[in-house]
């Protein structure tokens, strides 16, 4: 019945954010660490207008070779780089067991600022996310960014670092770190910043009760 040979259960991950936040890069990082360990992995990306601040989601499945797109209520992990978008796609989470990781980041000024649409306040969004998550973690993006004293702040690399602390995902920290160094190394300055972001990243993650 199952498509994978190892008979290991697929781990389904949804990564949610806005254009420009690095959703696709984060997906590639997770996928390539798993692939490097000899696991089956596949992912998809939804793009088009996403570069321009639109909603971006990518779906990633470890221990599955062919179909990255899974159904509602089948995600083991939801990784949200932006709160509003995370709430929008929270219906993907496996109700009682999914782990939800969110950041307290608000990147794009919603058009509703201009009075065209009603916009819920941040606390209300947070409350809803809490209500619908069985296990919720907060990545303190504001803290991380304040601590990063450069204009370029690689939130996705820091979140990647934090995610490697989930043992069940099977992402060894050293392999992950190597990949960050290899994969994101075109510009020397950016390379240094990414390296540091990975080193510090995991300390900004905490579980919310």
């Amino acid at each position: 019945m199952s498509q994978n040979i190892d008979n290991e259960k697929p781990i389904n991950i949804a990564i949610i954010g806005l254009g420009g936040q690095g959703v696709i890069t984060l997906t590639k990082l997770i996928a390539n660490v798993s692939f490097g360990l000899g696991k089956k992995v596949c992912y998809n990306e939804i793009h088009g207008l996403s570069q321009r601040g639109g909603s971006v989601q990518s779906l990633l499945r470890i221990n599955e070779a062919e179909n990255p797109v899974f159904a509602a209520k089948d995600a083991d992990y939801i990784i949200g780089l932006e709160k509003l978008e995370t709430l929008r796609y929270l219906y993907l989470a496996k109700g009682s067991t999914a782990k939800v990781i969110i950041t307290n980041k608000y990147l794009i000024r919603p058009t509703s600022d201009l009075g065209y649409e009603q916009f819920p306040d941040e606390d209300a969004i947070m409350l809803e996310i809490k209500k619908h998550s069985s296990e919720l973690y907060l990545f303190d993006a504001l803290g991380f960014e304040e601590n990063t004293k450069t204009k370029f702040k690689p939130l996705n690399v820091a979140v990647f670092s934090a995610i490697t602390t989930f043992q069940e995902l099977g992402l060894p920290t050293n392999k992950a770190e190597n990949l960050v160094n290899e994969y994101l190394g075109r510009n020397m300055i950016i390379r240094q910043i990414n390296k540091k972001a990975f080193k510090d990243g995991s300390k900004w993650l905490r579980k919310l009760e």
Binding site: L49, S50, G53, G54, E85, L87, Y91, I108, T111
Partner: peptide, 20 residues
């Protein structure tokens, strides 16, 4: 079209793509 969770008064606004 876009599933909304939770209270009816918490309808999520769409995130529309904009010029950079």
């Amino acid at each position: 079209f876009e599933p909304v969770i939770g209270r009816e008064d918490l309808l999520l606004p769409r995130t529309l793509p904009r010029l950079c």
